[in-house]
Amino acid sequence: MSSPQLFLDEPFRSLWAAQDPFAAVEALQGTVYRELEGRRTLRTEVAGRGYFVKIHRGVGCAEIVKNLLSLRLPVLGAENEWLAIRRLTEIGVDTMRVVAYGLRGSNPARQRSFIVSEELAPTVSLEDYCLDWPNNPPAVGLKRALIRRVAWIAGSMHRAGVNHRDLYICHFLLHLDSPPTPATLRLSLIDLHRAQLRTATPRRWRDKDLAALYFSVLDVPLTTRDLLRFLTAYFARPLRLVLREEEALLGDLAQERQRLQKRFARKSAAGEMT
């Protein structure tokens, strides 16, 4: 049996002194956001400060087989999120700060793990921040700065060999310590439990992330110039080269957008008829 992996920072280093961290994390109380047989997510408070806790109890052989037969990669525990956060922090991408992490067991079906991160507050998700843009457009400079920052985060992540697998704008948090301006805005990328890490991100997984991001801004009033601005910042290359070298990607994204728009139009029409 492999040795447990364990990282504890304050306040949990002191709070769990002389305790089994794997038992102590199970005893934490708070607001539960998700409760499944193999996973629990909650928000807890220690000394007036908020923390998010994810506990993985092993998914079981049946769940692993079911995911593989569906051509999906199962989430086996907290290790991928721990490693992804470390790598993003190394390259300067703002993300969660881990204060406790543990992994025990070598059998993926029975492995137990947990990760505790500081609550990022005050923040708002980009999805919520953009909701009123059709009625209340942001200042042009701020919108362009946000586009460039999202593009830089996505590009930096992919160039560092990380793909998110849930890259929607709801997983970008805008910090509100002070009113965001083009010069001071700060975005953090969260929810990395499905992330994959390699020495280089395969084109297939890069494009899946970009398609997800593109889909998540369908209701955000972005112009063609805004999208071109994103591509220039994401690829960090002149636009003329991007348009020439990434022609296949751009075609795929356009088709995916049309497909999703038609799909949701059909769903809306069906809802109105019932």
Rank of each mutant, 00 (worst) to 15 (best):
P11E: 05
A17F: 08
D9E: 14
M273T: 15
L189Y: 07
T123C: 09
P4N: 02
H193Q: 08
L243P: 00
T181S: 09
L71S: 12
L68Q: 10
L28I: 00
G38H: 12
A195M: 01
G271C: 05
P21R: 10
T44S: 04
V65Q: 11
H158E: 09
L6I: 05
F230Y: 07
L187Q: 11
V53G: 07
R206H: 02
T184A: 14
Q196C: 11
E63L: 14
G251Q: 03
D9N: 03
A154D: 13
L239Q: 03
P137R: 06
Q29P: 12
L239M: 06
Q5S: 12
L241C: 04
R263C: 06
R244W: 12
G60T: 04
A24T: 00
T95Q: 08
L213V: 02
V98M: 03
A269S: 09
S156A: 12
Y51M: 10
L192G: 03
G77I: 03
R194I: 01
S106H: 07
R266K: 15
I169L: 04
H164G: 02
P11H: 07
E247K: 08
Y129S: 05
V25Y: 07
K143C: 06
D209G: 03
A265K: 14
G161S: 03
R112S: 06
Y101G: 14
N107M: 07
L73N: 06
E90M: 10
D128G: 00
R149G: 08
G50N: 13
L131G: 08
R240P: 08
E26V: 07
E10I: 00
H164L: 02
T223L: 07
A121Y: 15
I85V: 04
P74G: 04
E272W: 15
V242S: 02
R72T: 01
F215V: 10
F52N: 02
W16F: 01
G60A: 05
A145F: 00
V65H: 10
L239D: 11
Y101R: 13
L210M: 01
R229I: 10
D9I: 06
